[in-house]
Write a protein that binds this DNA or RNA. Structure first.
Lengths: 127, 127
DNA sequence: GTGCCTTTACGAAACAATTCGTATTTTTTA
DNA sequence: TAAAAAATACGAATTGTTTCGTAAAGGCAC
């Protein structure tokens, strides 16, 4: 899998979010969702999705009266790609620094902390 | 502080890394370091650093024979800015998902895990 | 079928990031 | 001080992203 595919631009990420949340959709449906948040022309959304198709970020089904698009990659895959890039370019591979900053600067619920602690214990056993 | 300042581009980040590591430097010194990793013209490095000066990412001292540049923001500040952006655009604010993926997909030493666990315990007491 | 509305394709403008060449200024050195 | 070398400023080409207008194609109602 091409590295580039895991690194969508910001505008592309907005469209992916909608498709992950609502499932496969037409350009019209995506554009309607997008319109709730930001103003833009219909053809802008169309063009973006066509470009994403060309890049291999989206697939589409042409059997219907209008094309139906869906993401090629899962949200997890894209997140991991972006996270890896941030790790490499900004943290020089130091996972713990990133994790400590994430936990220190962003609110995390007690349940989430518990879940993370469980994973750490599991990792410590496994290593 | 302007949000934009915490989000340097990839090329800018490479230059910041050198300045954080080696301390304040001339364009020549930065370019020599950069040359070890990638090939590029001296004037490319110069132009980039001039642009970063204009953006407020770098300061410079003009008293000397050649300008000496240094970062305006610490590595921590820039990391936090980039991390916040990734959290907002890709993780919808879910810290735990990011942390779990970071720990799950990147190697972390036993010492680092211990450090993270300590922070979690501290956070749980504080909340 | 004709007209209307929607969808599509696509060229191109606007903008930003990156790159480098050239010309000018400054410093060194012989 | 004059020539050579280094540093600087800056215009402009290149590439990539985002934006939209226009024109063509497709589907629907009558």
């Amino acid at each position: 899998m091409d590295k580039k595919l895991n690194k969508p631009t910001d505008a592309e990420l907005e469209i992916l979010h909608i498709l992950w949340t609502k499932g496969e959709s037409t350009v019209r449906e995506v554009h309607n969702e997008l319109s709730k948040v930001k103003e833009s022309a219909y053809t802008t959304t169309l063009k973006l999705m066509q470009i994403m198709l060309g890049k291999g970020l989206l697939r589409r089904n042409s059997n219907n009266k209008s094309h139906i698009y869906c993401p090629v990659f899962s949200e997890d895959d894209i997140q991991k790609g972006l996270l890896r890039k941030l790790m490499e370019t900004a943290y020089a591979g130091s996972t713990s620094k990133l994790v400590l900053q994430a936990l220190g600067n962003h609110k995390t619920s007690r349940e989430e902390l518990e879940e993370i602690k469980k994973l750490i214990i599991r990792l410590e056993k496994g290593s």
